[in-house]
């Protein structure tokens, strides 16, 4: 069964494993998350839970959402996320999900929003090579030809061009859990995860491996 938790990316550091090897890790403050809503086949046509993270003051929540949060009766939250669960799952509204759903050695997927880079050129956005800087070169960071004049005489769809880059949802699959510290709600994941420090990430058991 796939289960997950919302968390805050705290940043990267390194730890030593049992053999003394250096392992790069991302530290995530994961949970505790509260189940705000339980969806069932009878009521919604599928089985899922909506989990909330980061408590929010009630007076900062709009009226429609107040009514929604009131059903679980555990306060309001700044971040909500729905995830599918097995139909027989005992999870119900009001229950808490802690970081201890993971253990060392688990394989997880981490979803986050990458750092926004604004309007970026093709070198940064698509790793184009660019041209020579000096010696009379007049071709520096431009994209080059995007469609010849005679044929095809138009720009082909999905041509790699300059534009907005970053701030998109990205999931990194199959990251290894290096450590879990339930008393501090910390999760140590091997390698990098999308997003800036303090950004919201969603960690779940890997869907393609190990579970």
């Amino acid at each position: 069964m796939t289960t997950g938790i919302l968390g805050k990316k705290l940043g990267m550091t390194q730890v030593f494993d049992a053999e003394g090897k250096v392992i790069p890790v991302t530290v995530i403050e994961a949970g505790p998350c509260t189940v705000v809503q339980r969806k069932t086949v009878q009521s919604d046509g599928y089985d899922a839970v909506q989990i909330g993270f980061v408590p929010k003051k009630a007076h900062r929540v709009g009226k429609p959402m107040i009514g929604h949060f009131r059903k679980a009766g555990k306060g309001a939250f700044g971040a909500l996320k729905e995830m599918r669960i097995a139909s027989g799952s005992p999870l119900d509204a009001g229950q808490e999900i802690q970081v201890d759903i993971f253990k060392e050695g688990d394989v997880v997927d981490v979803t986050g929003h990458t750092k926004g880079r604004g309007f970026a050129g093709v070198i940064k956005r698509w790793n184009f090579k660019g041209g020579r800087a000096t010696h009379g070169s007049m071709f520096h960071r431009a994209p080059g030809s995007i469609g010849a004049s005679a044929y095809p005489s138009r720009v082909i769809k999905n041509m790699k061009m300059a534009g907005h880059y970053g701030n998109e949802k990205v999931t990194i699959l199959n990251l290894q859990v290096v450590g879990v510290r339930p008393e501090q709600n910390l999760l140590l994941v091997r390698g990098a995860v999308p997003g800036a420090r303090n950004s919201l990430v969603f960690v779940r058991h890997a869907v393609k491996k190990g579970n």
Binding site: L10, T13, V27, L186, R197
Partner: peptide, 8 residues
């Protein structure tokens, strides 16, 4: 950041 320091 402080929690990160604590891990270190």
């Amino acid at each position: 950041m402080n929690l990160l320091k604590e891990v270190e």
